[in-house]
Amino acid sequence: MSTLILVLFLLLGTYFVAVIEEWSVTGRLRPAGPVRAALRLLGTESVLARKPDRLFFEVAPVLLLVAAILSLAIIPLAPGLIVTDLATGALFFNAALAYVLVALIMGGWGPDGAYAMIGGWRFLGQLIGYAMLVVMPITAVAMRSESLSTVVIVQSQEQLWNILYQPLGFVLFALAGMAMAFVPPFDLPTGAGDLAGGVEAEYTGVRRLVFRLGRMVLILSVASAMTVFYLGGWLGPVLPGWAWSAIKILVVTALMLAAGRALPRVREASFLAWCWKLGIPLALVNIFLVGVLVLVVPL
């Protein structure tokens, strides 16, 4: 039963993310859009470049999808409604999403095209910026919950959500999460006006469909992680837990994608500089503040 619910969550979640994503680009809400686009891609030729690293080219979209789905496995939607409640859940989330980088590098290198390759390497630069800002705030979250298990992390927020307990960590994690899902304004590897699609540029047809699916699941996964780590996951009055999870995840997704609509794409050089000169010191400050709070105010 719970497996069915989780599969349904995955499908519906991906669908809603796709609808919101299209809205963030075109400004229109078209419920049939994702279905049509998926069918169109299914029926379009999937071109293979002339002399590609074919293995890389084939593996990249699949790896992206698998990594994103695996990272969703540790997201609890309600008590008991989780695929695997790993003791190292928060760490596993990171581990799975580290392979997004590998997928993008493979997809960028594979077709032997300039736009794609530059996009892939750019994402490596982006990761060097955001990675610490994902793991350091998670550490601070774990300090409060005394566990890396996502279920315990949600339970630890019973009295006060982490967004209020450690707002600094939330801001850092939210920005880093957006960079991790390469949504605008951090869409350096796939920027449209910048690299004409970048890593996605050479993917057509069904391979592109898998790539896009992976992308949507990735956005869903990052939004879910924000919900679980900072917004109290399933916690909320009146409505059942899964409903709260769904509402929060959708709202976070919409906010995340709406922010990208209003901001210009960042420059890689300044992104790296901001992350290292401001982000990491702030993340360390956050750890210290949470450390003091945990000892002084045992909420």
Binding site: T88, L91, A95, A98, V102, L127, A131
Partner: peptide, 14 residues
Amino acid sequence: GVLQIMMMATEMSI
């Protein structure tokens, strides 16, 4: 195991 899987992804990419 999870640490190994995570760290190697970024470090080998670098």
